[in-house]
Design a protein around this nucleic acid. Structure first.
Lengths: 143, 143
DNA sequence: GACTTTTTCAGGAATGGTTATTGATGCAAG
DNA sequence: CTTGCATCAATAACCATTCCTGAAAAAGTC
């Protein structure tokens, strides 16, 4: 499965014209290793462990390239920096308003909904994502 | 209908313990007059016309109080400051990725969806909103 | 392989939206 | 009137992100 991802990575870089540099690969690796949905800063910290010379700006730049070519997805929450996700399959994430943890919600389909949106606006819809917030089980019990 | 809103405003302030000051009222008025979904800065400009002494910080503060007591709603988009909306009925907004304009999408119900989300996560869901982006008709024709 | 051109990078400064701080101000209760 | 507390204006601080620069690396060319 690593090779499938690997092939996809190469392919997307080739098509985009960007070069697959070691820094961009490192960012991708960090995102793969990171359980959850790290912020740019968190990705930076992981990357820096292996290669202390990379700058935060480089990570931002790499993330935006990776997002542009569709390898990763950026999610915007209120009161939180942007968080990145390697999983680009359609899915939804929920963020705990107390501890900030982000996890995925399985088994909720979105397609019907997106279709209905398209039927009700003259806009050409390019992107629709859900921002879901709540209190995670841990924080509930920690009342 | 103005009086219904008026009553609601008074009621919510009373219950919250906050005082209904002239500045907070001015922010509310600005939001009512503004067609669309202004940013804090835009609200500030409108408020300043009538009362040039208010500071941007005051507007931010007033907006956060108004949001806290449920009179207005804040929406977060990528690449855009937070935008505020007086309409707290459940509804969806779409933002044009070219010109930035935000408009409402009528006639799309959300409830089933929210229910399905609640059934699929152990989180206690407090908030779920859609972030929809697209290209508005004007910008499409202006290709 | 040496040369040239292009892309990317590191480091740090700059930006922009938002929040925090502080002392002043205004209103309410006695 | 005056004491007390919430709110306000002004401004400084903050933080995530972007921009800028010269250096380095990679890709293309002969």
């Amino acid at each position: 499965m690593a090779s499938a991802l690997e092939r996809d990575v190469r392919e997307r870089f080739r098509r985009s014209g960007y070069t697959l540099t070691s820094q961009r690969r490192a960012v991708l690796e960090a995102l793969k290793d990171f359980k959850g949905h790290p912020s740019a800063e968190e990705v930076y910290l992981v990357v820096k462990k292996k290669n202390p010379r990379v700058a935060l700006g480089t990570v931002y730049q790499a993330l935006s390239v990776l997002e542009e070519i569709g390898l990763i997805e950026a999610k915007h929450w209120s009161e939180s920096p942007v968080r990145y996700d390697l999983n680009t399959e359609p899915h939804h994430d929920i963020r705990c308003v107390r501890c900030g943890e982000v996890t995925e919600i399985p088994g909720v389909e979105f397609e019907d909904f997106a279709t209905r949106i398209r039927e009700n606006t003259p806009y050409e819809v390019t992107n629709a994502s859900l921002v879901i917030e709540g209190v995670c089980p841990d924080c509930q019990s920690r009342n």
